[in-house]
Simulated assay, not measured.
Amino acid sequence: MSTTGATADPLVALGALPGVAESVESVRKAVDRVYGHRVMRRRSNEITSEAALRGARGSAALSGADWALEEVRRRSDFSGDDEARAVGAALRLTAEAGQLLSVWRQTPLRVLARLHLVAAADRTERTGRVDQTDRIDGAEQVGRPRQAGEAVDEPLVELELPTAGEAHGRLEGLSGLIVAGSAAPALVQAAVVHGELLALRPFTSYNGLVARAAERIVLVGSGLDPKSVCPAEVGYAELGRAAYRAALDGYASGTPEGMAAWIGHCGAAVTLGARESTAVCEALQRGAA
């Protein structure tokens, strides 16, 4: 998507694409349903915690670590193989995203750098600092956009990789849109942030996890899902990796049909996430969970 356009609020036009209004309405109804559940009035913190866990599991599954929910719940050490590190990164990002809401609208690039630093924490020293001493493999690439010649580890995304220069330029454009604000529906804004970060893959690793965490920040910060109980990551995992890739291809095409399909896919994922938490509410009400 080009983030430089003649209109003051280019995202508004995306909200008018065929099918997008229907996706926005479907998401709103699903979100209203879970927020209106009687369990949410008494035990919303439990629903938020469970949604965070399930969302992290879903995001990790998309990145190739498709663990059972109970395994994610049980484990405490995620320092083993690549799958374990991906699950650990997803859990850390879910916890961190809620701490960055106030910063996002002012300095989104700083938030993205922080998200990558948190995701790739296993590549830095335990303090989280990256300096000229005590480096380990890949530490110098953590918490900053990739530079020319640096490889990107993101096997799920098969799109042509933009150059580092193009990625930097489009990141600045995306940041400008976020800071300026938009009257477009929250779903549209979240879908654009998610899709643009996946298309750009601005970091050398964990781009998918970072993109989905950024989408979560938009959905929560916009007020659509203020308690973070509608984990879109659950929906993306349920819809499957093939559908995720196909929808992302539509985003990258930049065509109205492709953009609408991507936004619709994101909307379907949020709706499924909301339904997941509604089911958790029902289980709690029955005393079964």
Results as ranks from 00 to 15, higher is better:
residue 245 R to T: 12
residue 166 E to F: 03
residue 52 A to H: 06
residue 88 G to C: 10
residue 37 H to Y: 07
residue 24 V to E: 01
residue 11 L to I: 03
residue 12 V to D: 00
residue 155 P to F: 06
residue 274 A to K: 02
residue 133 T to V: 15
residue 285 Q to V: 01
residue 25 E to T: 14
residue 126 R to Q: 14
residue 176 G to W: 00
residue 192 V to D: 13
residue 156 L to V: 15
residue 232 A to D: 04
residue 176 G to Y: 02
residue 272 L to C: 07
residue 152 V to S: 10
residue 42 R to D: 11
residue 239 L to M: 13
residue 94 T to A: 14
residue 61 A to G: 04
residue 208 G to D: 06
residue 60 A to P: 06
residue 212 R to P: 01
residue 213 A to C: 08
residue 28 R to V: 15
residue 80 G to C: 08
residue 5 G to A: 15
residue 41 R to D: 15
residue 263 I to G: 03
residue 286 R to S: 12
residue 286 R to K: 09
residue 181 G to R: 02
residue 77 D to W: 06
residue 45 N to K: 07
residue 220 V to N: 03
residue 211 A to V: 08
residue 8 A to L: 14
residue 77 D to E: 03
residue 76 S to M: 04
residue 210 V to G: 03
residue 123 R to Y: 12
residue 69 L to N: 09
residue 142 V to K: 00
residue 66 D to Y: 03
residue 23 S to N: 08
residue 232 A to P: 02
residue 141 Q to A: 10
residue 6 A to F: 01
residue 149 G to R: 14
residue 69 L to D: 05
residue 56 A to S: 10
residue 180 A to K: 01
residue 58 G to W: 02
residue 16 A to D: 12
residue 192 V to I: 12
residue 284 L to G: 07
residue 233 E to I: 03
residue 63 S to G: 15
residue 282 E to R: 14
residue 177 L to I: 07
residue 210 V to E: 03
residue 176 G to T: 05
residue 2 S to V: 10
residue 241 R to N: 08
residue 221 G to E: 02
residue 99 Q to N: 14
residue 29 K to Y: 14
residue 138 G to E: 00
residue 76 S to E: 11
residue 136 I to Q: 02
residue 218 V to C: 01
residue 218 V to N: 04
residue 233 E to S: 15
residue 19 G to N: 10
residue 199 A to H: 05
residue 281 C to M: 05
residue 194 H to P: 04
residue 134 D to S: 13
residue 275 R to Y: 00
residue 165 G to M: 06
residue 184 A to Y: 02
residue 217 I to K: 02
residue 220 V to W: 11
residue 32 D to W: 14
residue 163 T to H: 05
residue 265 H to G: 07
residue 237 A to G: 07
residue 52 A to D: 11
residue 178 I to W: 00
residue 42 R to L: 14
residue 219 L to W: 05
residue 8 A to C: 05
residue 5 G to E: 11
residue 111 V to D: 00
residue 159 L to T: 09
residue 111 V to P: 00
residue 167 A to L: 09
residue 275 R to M: 03
residue 37 H to Q: 10
residue 218 V to F: 01
residue 174 L to S: 05
residue 146 R to M: 11
residue 134 D to N: 13
residue 88 G to L: 09
residue 75 R to H: 09
residue 252 A to V: 05
residue 39 V to R: 13
residue 281 C to F: 09
residue 271 T to G: 02
residue 215 E to D: 08
residue 8 A to E: 08
residue 266 C to P: 07
residue 5 G to F: 09
residue 120 A to R: 07
residue 187 L to S: 02
residue 114 R to H: 12
residue 66 D to S: 15
residue 264 G to A: 14
residue 69 L to R: 11
residue 274 A to Q: 01
residue 42 R to E: 15
residue 141 Q to S: 15
residue 230 C to K: 00
residue 45 N to A: 12
residue 83 E to S: 15
residue 50 E to G: 06
residue 198 L to T: 02
residue 70 E to W: 13
residue 28 R to N: 13
residue 56 A to C: 11
residue 286 R to C: 04
residue 244 Y to I: 00
residue 102 S to F: 07
